[in-house]
């Protein structure tokens, strides 16, 4: 057990899996010699050799497409898309190929593939380094979509993803790489070394896909969050004094509906928060599910707090980002209903 950053935990997961299974290969832009622009693969090439961890040409289509072929061969590729914002050229290979090999070939070919992508904003990255495209994956049959929120979960979820027999989209909230950022951009962030979820077990362990975690038990309102918004929600609850139950979904597909349902039936209220744009965001799906499963328990309309329906801005980042103030207002409004 040691305290690690989320990057160190992610690297540790790949290290553990590369050591255990020589079918695991890692590649992407700047991933080999240099170890990735966020350093997630640092040292892996030196340790496992150039044919297990290598640099790829700047072609997201090529990276995902080649990985699909490798997975069909029997390898377990874990590839990096440098920023989720760069994913779109590879999207066809994810949606039409990776997600469907098993189905369309009746299990003759399968695609045990992990596509890692740093996601989300809060780093002054503007529209091309800040997007949260999770709903573009949750909408696709055949994919699993994971969003960890801590070093401990990141390692266990990534190992589970690499071992999974199906393609997994692994979205890493990059604002959480160094600490549990809660949306207060004008304050220093607690480093993971001082946070209990920065404690990462050594060696192999998994956090099963499809299991949510309750980050704060409460009785007044259920907050559904994932990634960076988990800490925004914790801050909002503390600052408003609303006794919120905060659920960290961790996996969006498959979704832990049982945990959500049990909580909302208990609290009678639900606020959903994500960084991605509002319209057709994953929050819409969550809202529909809560309405379908908890209608008779609801004492207030379900609220969604999300990024505005604009491209991710640069100078106006903190007006766009759904921080603790906005979420706090939503919590208070929900309690007034």
């Amino acid at each position: 057990m040691a305290r690690r950053t989320m990057i160190e935990a992610i690297r540790d997961a790949m290290d553990v899996m590369m050591a255990r299974d020589d079918n695991v290969v890692v590649f992407g832009e700047d991933v080999g010699y240099f170890g990735g622009v966020f350093r997630a693969t640092q040292g892996l090439q030196a340790k496992y050799g150039k044919s297990r961890c290598f640099d790829a040409p700047i072609s997201e289509l090529g990276i995902v497409g080649a990985a699909v072929g490798m997975a069909a061969y029997g390898l377990r590729p874990c590839v990096e898309i440098q920023f989720a914002d760069y994913m779109y050229p590879g999207y066809d290979q994810i949606v039409s190929e990776a997600a469907r090999l098993r189905y369309r070939s009746n299990g003759d070919f399968t695609c045990p593939l992990v596509v890692r992508m740093p996601t989300g904003g809060g780093i002054s990255g503007g529209q091309t380094h800040s997007q949260s495209p999770e709903a573009l994956f949750t909408h696709v049959a055949g994919l699993k979509t994971v969003v960890p929120s801590s070093p401990r979960d990141a390692k266990g979820l990534l190992i589970a993803a690499i071992e999974d027999p199906d393609p997994v989209i692994f979205l890493e909230p990059k604002r959480l790489y160094n600490g549990p950022f809660d949306g207060h951009h004008d304050r220093p962030v607690t480093p993971w070394s001082k946070h209990e979820l920065g404690e990462v077990l050594d060696g192999h362990y998994i956090v099963p896909l499809g299991q949510a975690a309750i980050r704060r038990a409460g009785s007044a309102v259920t907050v559904l969050a994932y990634g960076t918004m988990v800490y925004v929600a914790l801050a909002a609850a503390e600052e408003t004094g609303v006794d919120a139950e905060i659920i960290d979904l961790r996996t969006l597909v498959p979704l832990d509906l049982d945990t959500i349902t049990a909580s909302v039936r208990k609290t009678g209220r639900c606020v959903i928060v994500h960084e991605a744009t509002l319209t057709s965001g994953f929050g819409g799906e969550l809202s529909a599910l809560v309405q379908e499963t908890c209608f008779h328990h609801l004492e207030a309309p379900i609220q969604r707090v999300a990024g505005w329906d604009t491209p991710y801005p640069h100078a106006q980042e903190w007006d766009y980002f759904p921080g603790p103030a906005r979420l706090g207002r939503a919590l208070l409004e929900t309690m007034e209903q």
Partner: peptide, 24 residues
Amino acid sequence: FTVSGNLATQYIQAVGWAMASAVK
């Protein structure tokens, strides 16, 4: 290999499969 019906996707996959064969 399972034919996609989406054009050209298989071409880079063939290269990936061949790379895997070389890796192993």
